[in-house]
Amino acid sequence: MSAQTIADLQQEFMAHVLDDTSALPEGWTGRHAQGLAIYRNAYRARLVDALRGTYERTAKWVGEDAFRRAAAHHLITCPPCSWTLDDAGNGFADTLELLFADDPEVAELAWLEAAMHRCFVAADAQPVDGPAFAEATGRYNENDWARLRFKFVPGMEVRRVDHDIVALWRLLGDGIGEAGKCASGAGQYCAVWRDGFKPVFMLTDTHEGEALCMMLGGQTFGEVCAHLVGVTGEGEGVAQAGAILANWLRNGLIAGLA
C-alpha cells in the first residue's frame, strides 16, 4: 500500500464517518460495518455534545430534540476541519439563525453563548483603569484625542440585539421550565468581554453600541465623536462621548491606547 493509498483509505474512511449513506469499501464485511458504525456514532455524539456544551441556553430555548437535530444538520453541512473542538461551533449560530428564522431570539442567544465561550479562553490582559488613562492622556491636545484609538481587551465582541437578551439569559440559566417570548429591546447592542477570568456581557444603548463597533473596527475616538455629534448635536454628542468612554474604563473594556 503506497502513502497515496493510505491517503485514499483515510479519505474513504472519513467519508463513511461523516456520511452513513455511502457504500462500504470493496472487501469489507458486516463486521467492518459494525465497527464503522461505532466510529460514526462516537464522532456524532462527541460533536453534538460539544455544541450542546457551548450552546446550553440555546438548547433549552429551542428544546433538546430540536437542538440535536440542528446540531446534526450543522455537522452535515459544516463538518469540522480544525484540530480544536472549540472551532466545531464556528458558524453554528448562523446555522441556527437559518433553521429558526421564525424565532429571532435564537440567533441572538446563540451568538451570545458563542461569544462568551470564545472569550473564556481569550488572551489575558490588564485593563486600563481611570487613573492610568488620565495619566496617559494628561498631555493630549485636540489632535491627539481625535487620533486616539483603543486596544480593547482580547475576546471582546459586540453585536446589535433586538430582544431582551439579559432577561432571556437569566431565565434560561435558572433552568425554569417553558420560557415565554421575551420583551423587545430593539436597537440595543450587546458587548461581551472578560472581567478577570469571568466572561460577562452588558447591553448598551444604540449610541454606545455604535461607538463600540466603530472603535473595535479600528476607527478613531475623533470619528466616534463626530458620529455622535452628527446624530445628537454638538453639545450632547461630546458629552455622550465622554460618558461612554468613562463607562468603558469603569467596566474594564480598554486594554491600551494606540
Binding site: 464517518v17 460533536l47 476541519c81 484540530w83
Partner: peptide, 12 residues
C-alpha cells in the same frame, strides 16, 4: 483523526 479536509475528533 483528520484528512486534509476534515477532522473527526475521534481516534480512528
Amino acid at each position: 483523526t483528520r484528512t486534509s479536509a476534515h477532522n473527526s475528533h475521534d481516534l480512528l
